[in-house]
Design a protein around this nucleic acid. Structure first.
Lengths: 219, 219
DNA sequence: CGGGATCCGTTACGATACTG
DNA sequence: CAGTATCGTAACGGATCCCG
């Protein structure tokens, strides 16, 4: 195996980059913040990432203790974040925040799935909810499902349906990221690009309030 | 010139990485947070960075609008952050925060100067001072000088001496980063590794209080 | 001497094909 | 499905050279 390229500088920033600075590494971590994933899920989500690189990055991340393998439902293997890996959430949030000030490139390729959006959503909610709030909802973004939970202020967002959730909201991906990026006002988003497909008016309204708070806090 | 390698993904995190994700780019920005710098200052600070890469990165950063060239004192050219470049401060802070959870590598090379530390110091102070506080001090870390100012809560830290400052504190680099990384308690730092070389007991004490707040807030 | 540009060997990346 | 193997290309690292 090749010996890793490293800055070896006595500086915390350089040390962080030695762990997560390689190409694709932060994007892999980003997708794992949506919950444990199979190899193929990661590869389809990360459009343009070659298979050998994904394997190599996952190995490195395991050596560094940011990712571990776990057993999935039917004898499948899953990749999951360790606590050290979870700790990249604020970093990824700032990265997304910074990236949102640049216009998207014209020649873009869409990610193969939307695990992408979970970190920013999760961190935005974490910064805006207060310690005793509770909520549960399912989001449907371009036909892909997300389970959002707030238990006594602890926020989790996972990729996957949540049929039991009292509220279900559906929306389009592009409108969503335009809103979190601040290019679309959150009330325009709520009125034009968001549809409640399940839940009482009261439950829907209270969850929308939570979402609006997250969007506002991101700025 | 080669066409830039880009993720081209519809995701803010990927867009940020397209701007600042190349090797050395974030470290160059980090050093520029200490104030405008000459080419050679950057090169000596960034131990291991080849000259051609530095030139190429600076060009890219100027194209992307994060860095601009300005005229220095004696007909010299300086590189400085634009507002877009300044906006990387929270990102670099989180990166440093994350990196501080890993042990420094054994085979390390010291940076050629200490511009390195300014971002973290600056952002830590920004998060801990309140809107109406004022302070001015000179820090001397391993013989290198830093000018710290707080004007009505607005924090600036620049690389360079400040002989007019009412307070001057000297300390060692390794103790300082051990403290901001949380490996050394801040009172041990204050009592063992810090020396006040100028200023009344009162001024020194009040500035130490500010520093302690910054160290505590970083955690 | 500071501020680069040029050249070249080595490593990493990207695409695709292949295997258990 | 979950990787490994191969290979052409682009990027990096180190050194040297050039120019004001």
């Amino acid at each position: 195996m090749p010996k890793k390229r490293s800055y070896r500088l006595l500086c915390p920033i350089a040390r962080a980059l030695d762990k997560v600075g390689d190409r694709w590494t932060l994007l892999i971590l980003r997708d794992l913040h949506a919950g444990p994933a199979r190899y193929m899920e990661l590869q389809t989500g990360l459009t343009g990432l070659a298979s050998n690189l994904l394997a190599s990055r996952l190995n490195q991340l395991q050596e560094d203790g940011l990712v571990r393998q776990t057993d999935g439902p039917h004898g499948t293997q899953l990749y999951a974040l360790t606590p050290e890996g979870e700790a990249t959430a604020p970093l990824l949030f700032e990265l997304g925040n910074y990236g949102s000030r640049f216009a998207p490139p014209e020649d873009l390729r869409r990610p193969g799935n939307l695990r992408t959006i979970v970190v920013n959503l999760k961190e935005s909610l974490r910064r805006s909810v207060d310690a005793n709030s509770n909520a549960r909802a399912e989001l449907v973004v371009d036909e892909e499902f997300f389970a959002v939970r707030v238990d006594e202020g602890r926020v989790t967002v996972r990729y996957g349906a949540d049929p039991e959730a009292p509220v279900s909201l559906s929306m389009g991906y592009e409108a969503l990221i335009d809103t979190v990026d601040g290019r679309m006002p959150s009330d325009e988003f709520a009125s034009e690009h968001l549809e409640a497909t399940r839940g009482t008016a009261e439950d829907v309204g209270s969850f929308l309030g939570l979402l609006a708070g997250a969007f506002a806090g991101a700025r």
